[in-house]
Design a protein around this nucleic acid. Structure first.
Length: 571
RNA sequence: GUCCUCGUAGCUUAGCUGGAUAAAGCGUCAGCUUGCGGAGCUGAAGAUCGCAGGUUCAAAUCCUGCCGGGGACACCA
């Protein structure tokens, strides 16, 4: 299905191409939106045509304006300086767009692909380390990744949402070492995942302060990798504590994975690959460690295996890449990891290429979350744990909800508050572009005003409140001519551009385009709601306006669903 | 030192495959109750788009250099 917005733009290009009366590259023509509505609904800048026609852009616009015959969706054309400005027949646009949204419902904005276009894509995200705390930095990854999964599915692709858990490595060894050394006979608290995080922090600090401890922790890692029964048993037990903790958090966030990989399973095959590379002479030994020389790609040396023979991320990542493609026969692998690892991934991908494993793999980087006081670090003990954060936002939402609905049951209040809190949290993580560092600000997170998840939910609730009082009539009876105020027109063109907005968010891996779009649509609705009566207007007008707000609700709902945010009937 | 990234209003950001008067949120100030939910709406003040060159009919946007913040660059993950 090709959306109306694309058809309209194509029609306009066709009109211009036809009027030019000679061979031109239609690709060079673009359709833009004029700065103000009085100037037109859409415009084509004529600069490209000046070279061809050898007259000034203003003249081009002037002459073409004469030759273009309005008709169909284009009501009239004007030339303003070097621009051809098109005025659309809004009755037709409204009808097409609103009917399209009504017909497609929850699929409006999505794409259906043919078998040949459809890709099988793995999106790997979250990928937390066990034995460590789950903080708001991890939250950004989860928020982004889950939306990317939704977006790529909406774009018609088959997506395997994957989590790659860091369940082994020196961080695990350090944690277990400290657990054994300092907490032998301790009673474990209820939240064991969190407890492990604390032990890990303690381990890091102890090792910092006493360099001789590093050796002890390294030995633990050696034992783990060589299958020492005692340590393995402790590892298995504690690993599960973390996994349970993650599952609890994913459940709160409503996140699901199709496949979970773990480093511990990739470590052995990884070592085997490294061994082969060494034999083939692709990798080499250096200071006891195994490395690959990537200097001719300007990627320095890449460390594949430590000198004591224990594995690194790189070791298991080589195996993971092969395992993924082998098991799923992927067309593409997308990995979401923060930007600090960009160079690492360049090295990793180049190494795979050198090995002859040349598959489409992309690393999607994003900036990390930091605090006003500086970077979060377990070492400094200044991490904002997801749990603590969630509790705060939720209690804020509880308060606000109680203020508005003191007659609600505790259960209803809590359920509503939880949805509001989640929307606030997710939206805050998603509204900033991937390349911007988020300086975590609890006050901002607790504010439900302005560009926020709750604001969008509130908009939907207001629409619901109207529609609960009166349903719109049947669609074919609607007189679209009645949607003639500027705000209504703006809303309709905004609704029409939803598919474009989703498409850009998808191809750029930037959910922030979508958050931006949704906020703008909600804002338009709020202005409209304030200034234009709906229920009290004359029957024909009312029906048209009801149809319009049904469409707005549908688009807001589709967008919010993509963001993993639930809408509410009342809040 | 090399590479990556960011620099737009007091603060947080949008716009960045070049196009018309740089757009929002927060904050500040002034307003909005006989109507559909004030988690809202309207208006005002507030920007030499870090600096300097270059390309172009046209630069916040592209190129180069510089300045400033953040990050990465071999046994951490």
């Amino acid at each position: 299905m090709e959306y109306t917005i694309y058809k309209i733009k194509k029609d306009i290009i066709d009109l211009v191409v036809k009027a030019v009366e000679q061979e031109i590259d239609a690709q060079q023509l673009e359709v833009t939106v004029p700065p103000s509505a009085e100037m037109g609904d859409l415009a084509v800048p004529c600069f490209y045509l000046t070279k061809l026609l050898r007259i000034s852009p203003n003249q081009v616009a002037h002459e073409l304006k004469e030759k273009i015959h309005a008709g169909g969706i284009v009501k009239s054309v004007q030339n303003v300086g070097p621009y051809l400005n098109f005025f659309l027949d809004y009755k037709m646009v409204s009808k097409k767009v609103l009917k399209e949204i009504d017909k497609m419902g929850a699929t409006y904005g999505s794409v259906k692909l043919s078998k040949t276009e459809k890709k099988k894509v793995m999106i790997e995200y979250s990928s937390p380390n066990t034995h460590k705390e789950f903080h708001v930095g991890h939250l950004r990854n989860v928020a982004l990744g889950s939306v990317l999964v939704n977006l790529w599915r909406y774009a018609g692709h088959q997506v395997i949402a994957t989590n790659y858990v860091g369940d082994i490595g020196s961080h695990v060894a350090k944690c277990l070492w400290a657990l054994e050394k300092f907490h032998q006979d301790e009673q474990y608290p209820e939240n064991k995942g969190k407890y492990l995080g604390k032990i890990y922090t303690e381990a890091v600090n102890e090792i910092d302060a006493n360099p001789e401890f590093k050796k002890e922790a390294d030995e633990v890692l050696q034992k783990l990798e060589h299958g020492d029964k005692k340590w393995l048993a402790l590892w298995k037990e504690t690993r599960q504590w973390s996994l349970d903790e993650f599952d609890r958090i994913y459940k709160i966030l409503d996140i699901k994975f199709d496949k979970v990989y773990s480093i511990s399973k990739m470590e052995k095959p990884g070592k085997k690959i490294v061994e082969e590379l060494l034999q083939k002479g692709i990798a080499e030994k250096s200071e006891g460690a195994t490395v690959i020389n990537l200097e001719k790609y300007n990627l320095k040396y890449f460390l594949l295996l430590k000198s004591d023979g224990s594995s690194l991320y790189a070791t298991s990542d080589l195996a993971l890449a092969q395992a993924k493609f082998k098991k799923y026969n992927l067309d593409e692998s997308i990995v979401l990891v923060d930007t600090r690892q960009s160079f690492y991934f360049e090295q990793l991908f180049q190494t795979l290429k050198v090995m002859g494993f040349d598959k489409p793999m992309v690393h999607v980087p994003y900036e990390f979350v930091t605090l006003k006081e500086g970077a979060m670090s377990s070492r400094a003990g200044n991490v904002v744990l997801f749990d603590d954060f969630f509790v705060q936002v939720k209690s804020q939402a509880m308060q606000e909800t109680k203020k508005r609905h003191d007659d609600w049951s505790e259960k209803k209040t809590e359920e509503t508050a939880e949805k509001i809190a989640l929307s606030a949290i997710k939206f805050q993580m998603l509204k900033t572009g991937n390349n911007n560092v988020i300086v975590f600000d609890i006050d901002e997170a607790l504010s439900f005003d302005g560009t926020s998840g709750p604001y969008l939910q509130y908009t939907v609730s207001r629409i619901n409140s109207i529609l609960n009082k009166e349903k719109p009539g049947v669609f074919k009876e609607i007189n679209y001519n009645k949607l003639n105020t500027d705000l209504e027109k703006e809303m309709i063109s905004k609704l029409a551009s939803f598919p474009e907005s989703v498409a850009i968010a998808t191809s750029d891996f930037q959910p922030s385009h979508l958050t931006q779009y949704l906020f703008e649509l909600a804002k338009l609705f709020s202005s409209f709601y304030q200034s234009i009566p709906i229920l009290s207007s004359e029957a024909e007008v009312k029906n048209a306006r009801l149809a319009l707000i049904v469409a707005v609700r549908q688009v807001l709902t589709n967008g919010l669903t993509l963001l993993g945010i639930e809408t509410l009937d009342q809040m």
